[in-house]
C-alpha cells in the first residue's frame, strides 16, 4: 500500500487516492482535424512500462485535486510528485 505525498495535503495512505492512468496526454485542441488513426492514438494508446512511469493521481477522499506522480513500476517506488501543469522533473526520462 503506497504512501503518497499529495502536493496539497502531504503524505497520505493510498486508500485516499484513485489512479488516473498515464500523465501528460494532452487532449487535442482541434479534434476535428485529426484522422481516425490520430484520434485513436490519443484515445486508446497508453504505455505500459516496466520502469519509470509518469502517471496521474487524484486525492479523491481528500482535497480532490489531481496531480502527477513519477513511479518506478518495477519496485513501486514513488520518485517524485508534482502539480498539474508543472513540467515533469528533468532527471527522470
Amino acid at each position: 500500500m503506497f504512501l503518497i505525498n499529495c502536493p496539497f495535503c502531504g503524505e497520505r495512505d493510498q486508500s485516499e487516492f484513485s489512479s488516473g492512468g498515464e500523465a501528460h496526454i494532452v487532449r487535442p485542441k482541434q479534434p476535428t482535424e485529426l484522422s481516425d488513426d490520430e484520434w485513436a492514438e490519443y484515445l486508446f494508446m497508453r504505455k505500459n512500462i516496466k520502469g519509470i512511469q509518469f502517471e496521474r493521481w487524484n486525492h479523491v477522499h481528500g482535497c480532490r485535486k489531481w496531480f502527477n506522480v513519477v513511479r518506478d513500476t518495477s519496485n513501486d517506488k514513488i520518485l517524485s510528485v508534482y502539480k498539474m501543469g508543472e513540467k515533469p522533473p528533468v532527471n527522470y526520462k
Binding site: S18, G20, V26, R27, R56, N58, V60, R64, K65, W66, M84, G85
Partner: peptide, 13 residues
C-alpha cells in the same frame, strides 16, 4: 462529478 473535476483541473484549468 469526478469526471467534470478531472476536465476542469487538467484540460481546461
Amino acid at each position: 462529478l469526478s469526471k467534470l473535476e478531472d476536465y476542469l483541473q487538467t484540460e481546461w484549468p
